[in-house]
Simulated scan of single mutants.
Amino acid sequence: MNDSTENLLHETLLHDTLHTHVREHDGDAGPHLVGLADGALRVARRRQRLARAGAGVALAAAVATAWVAVADDGPPRAHVVQPAEGSDTPKAATVSLLPVTSSTEQACTQADGGYAVGATANHPAMCIHANPAGGMSNVRVSSAKAQKGDIDGSWQVEVTLTPTDRTRFAAFTGSLVSAPPPRNEFAIVVDGKLRGAPAVAASLTGGRFLIVGVYSGDLTSAQAHDLAQRLDPAR
């Protein structure tokens, strides 16, 4: 195991440990511990990619996470130095929330134009169609965070929309309530990939939704944190 892999494993363990601590001990320092863990994990991942590409340590240092004070009497906050132009940092994800038009228990064909869901040990293959002209495209996200669900402990991403899109989201989900299944569902599409298709029982006015995967339990810890990083405009 090389140094970059060992660093990544170490930072991942630190990240998950701090998240668990914050969930169990709600305090003023919680957000700062989470920020430190998230920043350290991102730095470790970038260092691993740079090591594989044969890049030097100097570029890795350019994306190091630094701690700065907000004010003399204020708590510290995490500040991530932006990488130089031309780095391998991924661009922000594109999000669409589209009304589901049909859902069938069979694999999609090439001409279907639907979203293919592979079969698992507990679920059959699915082909889900959504209306690309309906719903919300270019959704604006205010924040996103990876967390474990309270019910089954599976990983999920909580997404919070900007105030403008919260209003649109409430109207959109409200229009699905009276539709029969599966047209009471909306497809969560991130970078062209289906990430979930939750059903709506009432208009969602809080401006939040969860990404759990097409089936609950689909996301691993690494996948949930990577997705949250892509969605959160502050990261």
Score class of each variant (00 low, 15 high):
Q110D: 08
R47Q: 08
A234Q: 09
T109N: 06
N184G: 01
R45E: 11
T173F: 00
P198W: 13
V214Q: 10
G217S: 10
L204H: 02
A179N: 13
S87L: 03
D226V: 12
V212L: 12
L97V: 11
P90Y: 02
L36I: 13
P31L: 00
V189I: 04
R23N: 10
Q110H: 09
I128G: 01
W155C: 14
L204A: 10
M136D: 06
A93P: 07
A84R: 15
A58Q: 11
V117F: 00
F172W: 03
H225S: 12
W67H: 08
E6G: 14
T65H: 14
V81L: 11
L161W: 01
A125P: 04
L97D: 02
V70L: 13
T101V: 10
G27D: 07
G30D: 05
T109M: 13
G74Y: 12
A61H: 11
Q82A: 06
P182R: 08
S4R: 09
A144Y: 04
A58K: 03
L9S: 15
V80H: 07
A37I: 01
R47K: 09
R23G: 06
G118S: 06
V212M: 15
A69Y: 15
V22W: 03
S137Q: 15
L13S: 11
H10G: 06
H10T: 12
V68L: 04
I188G: 01
K193E: 12
T173Q: 01
Y215Q: 10
A40G: 12
K148Y: 01
